[in-house]
Structures are given as C-alpha cells and as structure tokens.
Design a protein around this nucleic acid. Structure first.
Length: 604
RNA sequence: GGGGGUGUAGCUCAGUGGUUAGAGCGCCGGCCUGUCACGCCGGAGGUCGCGGGUUCAAGUCCCGUCAUCCUCGCCA
C-alpha cells in the first residue's frame, strides 16, 4: 500500500513557507464546517496546523475527528484579521488540493482534542483507550520528557565508564520484602520463577565479575497494594560500582541528578528553578527535625521540643505524658491564630487519624486585645486560648523561644513516644505546609538522607529486620555494637529524597563473608536458610569480591517530580489501574485449560 | 485487609420517594465563505454499575456485591 508521504511536519510551518507545495500526514484534530468553507486542524507529533478546504472542489464530509490523513496543499499566508496568535502556525494555513483518508475513525469514547475536558475523564477509560489518550499533545510531552531524561542518564553514565547490562526477568524468589510475581516452570510443576523486585543480586554479582561500573534501566516488579505513586511494574535506573566509598556514590548520583535535571528544565522550558546541590541530613537529624526520612525542604517549619520545659508543668497532659516516657514536641502554624476553635479541632482530628492521642495548642496573639483571655508576657508577646492558661509564664516563654514563634501563630503540640510522635508531626508538618501554601511549585529540593540504622526491631516477629537489605554494610565504626546493641549500628546506607518523596535508595554492600555471616546471625537467618536463599551469592563472594556499592533512583517518580504530577499513571505509556488490571489488554485473564494441564497446575 | 469518595446518554454532570429521567459537549441530518470553544435549526441516543429488599410507587431509602479513585496498613 502506498500513500502520499509527508514533505513537512505540521508544527514546523511558518510564514516563510508561504507559497510552498507540501504534503502532510497526521490526524484530524478539530473540524469546523462553515458550509461554503471547511477548516480542519491537522495534528502530527510536531504540532497543529489549520487546513482550508473548499467544498466546491473537495468534499470534506468523510473527514471525521481523529481520522488519519494524508494532505496535499499549498502553504498560504493568512490575512491580517484571520491570523491566530494562539497557534505557533497561526500566521499560515494549508489550502488543500487533495487528501486521502489513511485511517478512518469511529466516533470517539472521549474528547481527545479538548485538553480541558480531558482533565476530568474517567481514569479507567483513559487507560482502556490509551492509544487515544496518548494522542494528546500534553501526553506526548510527558513521554518525550521521559525519553530525554533516560537518554541523558545513559549519556552521563556512559561518559563515566559505565556498562549498560541487562539482567534476567525470570529469576528467583527471595521471600523478603514485597510479594513476588511468580511464573510457573513447565518442566517441573511446583517450581516457579519470580520476577525481580529489583536486580539487586545480579548487580552485585556483576561487581564480583569485575564489571566495575554497571547500570540498567531496569523494570522492577512488586505485588503490593497500589497507590497514586506506585504501579506493579515500575522502572529504576539501577547502578552499581566497585572500589567506591559512600561518598563516591553520593557524588555520582548528585552529579547525575543536578546535570540531567537542569538540562531538562532548560530544554523543555519547564517552569522550574534550576536545582541546587543536594542538601545532606543524617537519618537522626531528619527524624528529629522533620519527623520522617523523606522531608520536604521546600519549606522550613521544623519540629521543636519542649519536653524539658514542661516536665513539672501544671498542665497535667504534658506532665503525665513526660512521666510516662513520652516527649512533647510541636510545630508552629504560621498565621494559624485566625483559625476558629472548630478549625483547630479539625486539625486535632487530622492528627488522630495518624495515631495521635490528641493535639494541644494555643494561639500566639498579636496584641493584648487580640481576642479573649489574652495573657501578656514580659517579652512583649501575647498568648491566648487552648492550653495556654494551664502553663506558667516561664513555660510559655520557653515554648515561644523553642518554637521561634511569631505573633499570629498557632502552636501545636504532640505528646507521644518518639517514633509515634514523629509520624504525627511529619504528617502535620506537611499538612500545615499545604494549608499555608509553603510548597513552591517551582522548586525541586533534592537531598541526601544518610546513616540509616542497619536494622530495626520487629515487634511482631520478635526479631531484627534489615532496614535496607541483608547485604547492606554496617558502618565500620559501629561494627563493635553488632552483637551487643544492634539498634545502635548505623549502615552505609543512603536515600535521595525530593520534595517529600523518596527518589533513590542505595548502600555500600558487605563484601567480606565473615561480616555477612554476623549479619545473617543477627537477622536470625540460619545456615540452611542462607544456603537456600542466598547460597549462590554467598559462594560468589568467596572468590575475591571487591568492595562495592550502588543506588537506584526511580525513573517514573523522577518524571513525576519534573512535571509536578501526583499520579504515576501520567508518566507511563501503559499503566495498569489500581487493582493491577490492564483494561486495554484485559490482563490478567483466564488461560486455556491446555495451559493449566501443561503447567501441571490446578486451583485448590 | 481497613476507611472515605464516585458509579445516571459516547464524555462531563444535574436530578426534592410521585407524569414520558434532563443539561452541556459529542454523534447523525439540514442551513451557513473566515472559523479557530464557529453559529443556527432539527434528531437519535438510557440495563440510572449489578443483585436483593422496603414501599401503592425507588435513579432517589435499606442490605449486599462489583468496579474505579484517594487513603491507612503494606511496599527488604
């Protein structure tokens, strides 16, 4: 089959092309039939151009929305009054001499050419008709950005001596972490491959194999509940390096992040400030100041602590909590003094959703007559309401000082055990940040969170679990506590966070069998289990394993940051819906009875 | 696994227990030579997610169920 092949792209045409004969290929974007004259906007990947058809010469009736066209015509300058300044091709139009419908189109399930209306179209429908949804220029731009991002990452790593190496998709289940997706093995019913949750073990083996610098745009599979930012399959830029320290890995990823991000911001004309060098926080600092290990540093609002100031307080809630071992910490809500009692009560309910027992608070008034029951303090400040009347003058002064409070604030307090309180304060801080509009949408605040603990106590299991994974190296100076005080051992383990979300996670790995053995002992993984699960990698490590480490940033999430998208579906070509269902392919779907038999499977 | 929201025309949504369930856009037909959200006239189009129940009467109330979106748990 032949067709009239294009000589130009729609979006490239300008006044300078006036008079030229062109052939264009594309889709009918919008059609305006005026009777004696028909306009059709033709769209290809490059943009949109208006065509004019004279029905006296050509019948335009067969042209329907989103049909695929080949068009022959002449570029004509539009008259002054008919130019469209809103279109980059608006100075010209194509006077059509002939057209072919290369692919006719049925009526559409949703208004493809109307970006405004598309914003509210049902998500499942968009996924089901993804090939139509993706025709939209806004969706094209997302995938173009993603393509450019991956290209830049590849180039950055290639220039630094990395090999791109593929690792298997059919691999072995390691029953730690997330649930595996499994693939039955036909030759021996009852045996299964697992799809990789990440290429973790392969990339370490590549270091044992002397590859020294590896990366891969790696698909990862995890069978867990979905979220707005999670899909059952997602993509990581997986990396590993030999003979490196933690600092080497950090500098590599920071260099990559800053370079690629700032190039993309410039090339795509994104409404974002160039990103700065990554901030650095230790895990302990991050927890103390922001209540979490992925702080949003687009705004300040740090957690303050007043435990020592209210130890003997007349306010029973605080005093009793401290006696019970809780800590009293809080956040300032800038401008929160205008909140009604009902608003504050709503804020307290918010905290309770995250497990808080309650939330104490008081207003920092602007003057002595700013509301009822104002207490004047000797430093010239005023407080009122909430628990202020139960606190002594010196307690109030200490609290205002710790909170770095300003007139007009609402001060919020959470009394709880450290970890539980952190969770509440983390959520509350983000909530206040949102309510006060403190998240600048033009900022991307990338940074490192360092020195994660090696293990954490699992109360249900009654054992120590790896915070990262069992191959994570303990810090050399903390090795001495491995048996005596495991919770105190920090790891050479690091995250990169951005705007309150985790971007990348990585660590220096254990390369010495004796240390690995101590870790397995700590984690309660006995010899037999070690052999069954990790025998292959443990043996590999007995043949001269180099010191090595790596990191793996999420590609999908990166594009979400750049675009300010809240949903991962928006940055993937073919996402699944929340249940893991693909409404286009109708997957998963039943298999033929023959296939059951062949695999030696049946439902219980 | 838990919580919340949504489900009515192709799409987005209205719809007080009571007549033949509506609107905008889209679609189909007609008119229209400068539109770019074209305009005007006419028309077709409904398993009110599904199943049960209450009621003289259910899109509307109740119970169950399914799907979807968000969320808590979960995600080494």
């Amino acid at each position: 089959m032949s067709f009239s092949q294009r000589t130009r792209l729609c979006g490239d045409l300008r006044a300078e092309h006036a008079g030229q004969e062109v052939v264009l290929n594309g889709w009918a974007h919008k059609i305006r039939d005026l009777g004696g004259l028909t306009f059709v906007d033709l769209r290809d990947r490059s943009g949109i151009v208006q065509m004019v058809i004279d029905p006296a010469k050509l019948d335009p009736k067969e042209i329907r929305s989103e049909c695929c066209l080949a068009v022959r015509g002449k570029v004509a300058l539009r008259s002054e009054e008919t130019r469209n300044a809103k279109m980059s091709t608006g100075d010209i139009e194509i006077v059509v001499d002939a057209f072919d419908i290369l692919g006719p189109a049925k009526p559409l399930p949703f208004p493809v050419s109307d970006e405004d209306q598309m914003r509210s179209v049902n998500e499942e429908l968009r996924v089901k008709y993804r090939y139509l949804d993706l025709r939209r220029p806004s969706m094209h731009r997302k995938l173009a950005l993603r393509s450019a991002a991956v290209t830049k990452m590849r180039r950055y790593l290639d220039e630094r001596g990395f090999y791109e190496i593929e690792t298997p998709i059919f691999t072995k289940s390691t029953p730690e972490g997330a649930r595996d997706y499994l693939v039955p093995y036909r030759l021996e019913p009852g045996k299964f491959y697992a799809l990789p949750q990440s290429p973790q073990q392969y990339k370490q083996i590549l270091m044992v194999a002397g590859m020294e610098r590896y990366y891969q745009i790696a698909r990862c599979f995890r069978d867990e509940a979905q979220r707005a930012d999670r899909q059952p399959e997602f993509t990581q830029l997986d990396m590993e390096m030999s003979f490196v320290t933690q600092e080497d890995v950090l500098q590599l990823i920071e260099g990559l992040g800053v370079t690629v991000t700032n190039e993309l911001i410039a090339e795509f004309g994104m409404d974002l400030e160039p990103i700065e060098p990554f901030f650095r926080l230790t895990y302990d600092e991050s927890m103390a100041r922001y209540g979490c290990d992925k702080p949003d540093l687009r705004f300040g609002l740090e957690i303050f602590e007043i435990t020592d100031h209210v130890r003997e307080s007349g306010f029973g809630v605080f005093k009793n909590a401290v006696e019970a071992g809780s800590r009293i910490r809080g956040l300032r809500y800038p401008g929160g003094s205008i909140l009604s009692r009902k608003d504050v009560s709503g804020l307290e309910d918010f905290c309770k959703e995250y497990g808080a027992k309650g939330m104490a608070s008081f207003y920092v008034a602007k003057s002595a007559d700013d509301g009822e029951g104002v207490i004047s303090l000797p430093n010239g400040m005023f407080v009122r309401g909430g628990c202020s009347k139960f606190l002594s003058e010196s307690e109030l002064l200490s609290i205002l000082s710790e909170a770095k409070s300003e007139p007009g604030d609402l001060l919020c307090f959470i009394a709880d055990e450290y970890a539980a309180g952190n969770n509440v304060l983390y959520r509350l801080r983000n909530e206040i940040g949102s309510r006060c509009g403190l998240r600048d949408p033009r900022k991307l605040k990338f940074g490192f969170v360092l020195d994660f603990p090696l293990v954490e106590w699992n109360p249900e299991g009654g054992r120590w679990d790896s915070v990262h994974h069992p191959f994570t190296a303990p810090k050399a100076e903390d090795l001495q506590y491995l048996e005596t005080d495991p919770g105190k051992v920090r790891a050479d383990c690091y995250d990169v966070v951005c705007n309150g979300a985790e971007w990348a996670s990585g660590s220096i790995r254990i390369n010495r069998p004796d240390v690995q053995a101590r870790i397995f002992h700590l984690l309660g993984i006995d010899e037999a289990t070690q052999q069954a699960r990790f025998g292959h990698i443990l043996e590999a490590f007995q043949y001269g394993a180099p010191p090595h480490g790596g990191i793996a940033p999420g590609i999908d999430r990166y594009i979400m940051f750049l675009l300010g998208e809240d949903n991962i579906r928006e940055v993937m070509a073919f996402p699944k819906v929340g249940s893991g269902y693909d409404p286009f392919m109708d997957a998963p779907s039943p298999i033929d009875p023959m296939q059951w038999a062949e695999l030696g499977l049946r439902l219980s």
